[in-house]
Amino acid sequence: MTTDERHEYHSETELADLNAEIASDLEKLGLKQTDVESTIKNDDNEDSKYHIITFESRAGHRYQLYTVPEIYPSILSFEYNLARQVGRGLDEATIADLLTDLPEEFPLDVDEKKTESAGLIALSNMSDAELEELNYRIIDEVNTDRVDFETRMYEEVIHSVRIMGALFPKEDSHTIQHTEEIQIAIQSTGIRLNQFIMYAFSGLDGKDTEDITSEGPLF
């Protein structure tokens, strides 16, 4: 879809007003607002987001609320970072070994995201069969009627999943109860995915550095 073909459902001012209403709901539901970015616009990027509001739950989980003019609803999202979770299970020696001789076009800033970078390299070292099985199991955990999702991939492995729910604040039927239902659906899907990842990679502590760097974590 080109920029000229996109239909804008809301003006930028309306987007801010719509998200402010949902933000009020989320704060009443116990989420703490931590950041607001009024507009991130890129005419060449169909994923441009408008009026992004970041929240944090009592458990430390971060959510983002945003709207884009090309779609009707506002979106509440939570990003589950598989690479970072796997990286947390690696010891310092393994992390150091994994971060030597990185590919030129590595997608992460290693200085800022050392643990996540090591986890991503470890995952990409897995066999094709293991990667295929892991990707299948991840999709199986998040593919429900209650939420939408997007995956991010590197070297054929899913390393991050954005779990999303649609909210329609301009509709007469919109209520704080609906906002809560969407937030709980996103949260429960994220918890289920985390439980699978924690179980699948629970044996990392017992693996040798050489095995992980050569074969990946092998869930």
Rank of each mutant, 00 (worst) to 15 (best):
R192H: 15
A166S: 15
A16M: 06
T39H: 13
I186R: 11
A23I: 06
D211P: 06
G206A: 07
F55K: 12
R146V: 10
I95L: 08
R62L: 05
K170C: 03
N19P: 00
E171W: 08
A20G: 01
A93Q: 15
R6V: 01
F106Y: 11
I52S: 03
E181Y: 03
T3H: 02
G87N: 12
A129Y: 01
G119N: 07
I22D: 04
I138Q: 06
Y80I: 07
A118Y: 08
R58F: 00
Q85M: 14
A83P: 06
R137G: 02
E12I: 01
E133Q: 06
N143G: 08
S57I: 01
F55M: 10
D172S: 12
A20F: 03
G60N: 00
N125G: 03
G87Q: 13
N81L: 08
S127D: 13
E130K: 05
L102H: 09
L204E: 11
S202I: 13
S202T: 07
D145E: 14
Q85W: 04
S77E: 15
K207L: 15
L120W: 05
Q177P: 01
A200Y: 08
N143L: 05
I158Q: 11
D111E: 15
S48K: 11
S124Q: 14
K114H: 14
D109P: 08
E21A: 05
T189I: 10
A59E: 15
I40Q: 12
M198N: 15
L29F: 08
G30Q: 00
E79N: 10
I186L: 05
L82S: 08
S188P: 00
R6G: 01
I186P: 12
Y199W: 13
T100V: 12
E79Y: 02
F219T: 04
R6P: 00
D44P: 04
L218I: 01
F196W: 15
H178D: 09
Q187M: 10
L82V: 14
I138L: 13
L15K: 02
Y136D: 14
Y154L: 03
E155A: 15
A23M: 07
Y154N: 08
D172V: 05
D91S: 10
Y136L: 12
H61T: 03
E132R: 03
D25S: 12
L90W: 13
F55I: 05
E150G: 01
H178P: 03
K113R: 14
G190M: 02
I212D: 11
Y80D: 06
I22R: 05
D47E: 15
I184N: 09
T54Q: 10
P69Q: 09
A83M: 14
K28M: 10
Q195S: 07
P217T: 09
L131I: 14
D101T: 10
T54A: 09
